[in-house]
Design a protein around this nucleic acid. Sequence first.
RNA 1: GUCCCUAUCGUCUAGCCCGGCCUAGGACAUUGGAUUUUCAUUCCAAGAACCGGGGUUCGAAUCCCCGUAGGGACGCCA
Length: 445
Amino acid sequence: MNNVRVRFAPSPTGFFHIGSARTALFNWLYAKHTGGKFILRIEDTDKERNTEESLKVIKDGMRWLGMDWDEGPEVGGDYGPYYQSQRSDIYAQYLEMLRKKGRAYDKDGAVFFKVSGQKQVLHDAVYGDVEGFEEKDFPIFRSNGTPVFHFVNVVDDICMQITNVIRGQDHLTNTNKHLELFKAFEAPMPRFAHIPLILKGDGRGKMSKRDRGALVEEYRERNFLPEAVRNYLCMLGWNPKNDREIMDTSEIVELFDFPGIVKSNARFDERNMAHFNTVHLRALDGDRFCRLASAALSAAGIGVDCSDPYVRRALLLCQPKVTDMENFAPLASFFFDESYAFDAAAAEKVFRKGEPLKRLAELAELFAKLDKFDADSLHDALGALAESKGLKISEYFPILRYALSGLSSGPDLLPMLEVMGAERVKARVARALKEVESPSAREGA
RNA sequence: GUCCCUAUCGUCUAGCCCGGCCUAGGACAUUGGAUUUUCAUUCCAAGAACCGGGGUUCGAAUCCCCGUAGGGACGCCA
């Protein structure tokens, strides 16, 4: 288990598919779990596309998900180069080896590999023993002189001394070709582990790049937490067998191993993904949450400074209620904007019953003479007010919330008042009074 | 068409390898309640599954076979 070397070998296509990300993740986890090395190798054999740009998408995505590589682009290593486009000489040497053994021949300008055609058994770490064979010779160099995937993949795995090949189950039958190649080179065989595929949330077939939620960059843009995406991805096709689901990375690293990998394909579930995100968001430490929240507000045109105590207290008040950062700004911006909007739907809810206007006036009166403005004192004062009017304290809550935020829901109300402070609250109640007195305020609903 | 893989609640899964402890567990989602303070929170509860058929066995979700369904591979793509 000590000298484990695993690799992730993406082809830069311009996007980072969630299935690829999970393959990378399983490799990375296995390396971390065993104390081995994780190698990033770029399979750019016949690319005309803007490779630099495309590669950046993958590197950025990997870093965002917290997957660092021990060898590969930018970090180097003893087994380079790590771009297949720079390994032509090596491929030529290996082709020569096959020629000498009589296992390669020319046909139609291409080079073909001569298979043994013998039955072989793959000992897969996930699927167990799988029998199969490759009956047809297959091309290893195209007529344009470039090498083919099966060939470079095996040659590189040999050169880079890869001990464990962890890849998608869609390669299961390809493995016959690879087994043939390894044997022809008389190279030590890596251990294979094929992992189940991620299927579309709805519809047929595996997740494709056009499906919602299929791309890693999409999650970053939508301000998902990387640890949440990582956590959810792990739970798709793997489980620790102890009912644990929400885990931090160190716990996953400790528990991750092949026996926990499921054999059947898993359907992607957007809502479950969102749930993981929510839980991680709420568990986030205050500093990070504030940074994230202020970034979301800035993106919505509301510049706030986390080092401002008011900002920090307001944001932290929102944290236990947050579901995602995508829709965070509209729910928290009222804290920082004295011209906050009064929501029509909220107004309808609030004004449906009782005498909200009267309550609001009573509140204004109460706040005017209040000298303490902490949540507890406010609770007592509101309780006393309600009692004097023969009402329940809850009669005052919806209208007060509406007055202060223009909304019908939000953070805990009393702490919210405390954070906002007496002056701001009074000003807002006054503003709301004016707003609801004028009929125009509620038009356009 | 050929070959390969898989099959437990709507979804992700535990249990299966080493048959009895399964009245089949957890999570998401759904529905319904509760919190003498609002709610987007929290808590509680409910409904919800062993694909079908044959075996083997005293006994099968668990082992075997056949169907069926789903997925994948059959490129001078990776």
